[in-house]
Amino acid sequence: MPVVLVGAGKVAHAAHLREVRDLPGELRLAAVVETDPRHVDALRHSGFGGVPVCGSAEEAVRAGARGALVCTPWWTHREVVAECLAAGLPVLCEKPVSLDPAEIDELTAAERRTGLPVAAGYMKRHDPVVRLFVDHCRDRLDQARRFTVDIHDPNAPHQVAHLVPYDPPPFGPQPPRAREALARALGPGSTGAQREAYARGLGGSLIHQVNLVHAALAGSGRELYGSLLHADLWAGGAGVSCRWRPDEALVVDLTHQRLPGHRRYREALEFTAEDGVATLTLPSPWARDEAATLTVESWDAGRGLAERRVHTAEPGHTGFRRQLMAWARQLSGEGDTALPGLADVRQDARAVREAALRLR
């Protein structure tokens, strides 16, 4: 399936380009839309030197593209995705597709108008071990007591320096256009600390896990939005945590900490039910030589018996890879499962936006 890559920056080099290169039977890079000369030059070092560099989605369509993989900075997504849809290209857009409910509504209208789908880059949903975890949670929602997420994230250049053929950008303040987008999304009454947390700890990271919680709760009538108990910010904004109570029996606790001194990324999700605990641990999203691990411990108090099962997947079959494979099937009309889309994006953004506005 010939596709165009829109934006050949960090996430494209650290994840998508190497997967596209290893999936010649599913995807072919027909064009790239990129204006940064450094990023264009880096394509030659990634094995894509012969791919045409275009100035627009329409030009990419003339080069043969039939789908658009959008990897531009998040604050550009509304205009980029809308341009791709107008050019006749279905889209897979990196997360967060948008943090602004008004922009999400605009894209939903464009999706309906063109009849073309916008898939959201929730790559964790495509990891088979994560899917086992979500299914486990769904099967035991009537016994659910607590859902927790704890992330230790270096969020530092060393995480991707070995994957990007140029010096990755340092962690720093949001650029002007991002600050403008955050002000629109949160409103004029929001603080700088709230906007920073919304862009990073909440919208840049925990929105993945909010999406997993929503996937587990789907169809149960339980919602995160509207059930927020509190949201906290500490360590100068490097730590953020939220607690929701979707119903009388269940609480959901999510925490993200930026810890540059930690050389390794750590992510753990735990689902506690009346009769057991399921713990999911995930490696860095950039890792290909590690895999997720799910440990399910259950017990029968009456018989005094316990059971412990461990599930893992073969390294290399990452969420990024399986997401691209699923998208390729969708583009070809062969996929039988819908990818997460704008309805998911809107549900997740409402929950994290509510949390951002409660931060003090």
Rank of each mutant, 00 (worst) to 15 (best):
H214N: 15
T279P: 01
G316L: 05
R243E: 15
P260C: 07
R245D: 08
Y198C: 15
G276I: 10
A249C: 06
L254M: 15
A216E: 01
T191W: 03
T293C: 10
G261H: 10
R222P: 04
L269N: 00
E297V: 15
G192H: 03
E307F: 11
P188I: 02
C242D: 06
F271K: 00
V310L: 08
G219P: 05
G204L: 06
P260F: 06
H256N: 13
A292N: 13
A287Q: 08
V240M: 03
E290N: 03
T312S: 11
L202Q: 09
A313M: 09
E274K: 04
E267F: 02
C242P: 03
V240N: 08
R309I: 13
G219R: 00
R309G: 10
D300Y: 15
T255Y: 00
R195S: 12
R322T: 06
G239I: 05
E290M: 07
S298C: 09
L212N: 00
C242I: 08
A313S: 14
G239S: 11
E223L: 10
T293E: 11
R288I: 06
G236P: 11
R264A: 12
A193I: 12
G219L: 01
T293G: 00
D300V: 12
A199Q: 03
H311W: 13
F271Q: 00
G261V: 08
A238V: 06
H208L: 10
A218I: 01
L233D: 02
W299T: 06
L233P: 02
A238I: 09
N211F: 02
P246L: 12
G236Q: 13
D253L: 14
V296Y: 02
G203Q: 01
E297N: 07
H230Y: 10
W299Q: 01
E248I: 01
T312F: 08
P315G: 08
A291I: 10
R264Q: 12
D275F: 02
E274Q: 11
H317P: 03
A328C: 09
S298T: 15
V296K: 00
R245Q: 15
Y225Q: 07
R303W: 10
G319K: 03
Y265S: 11
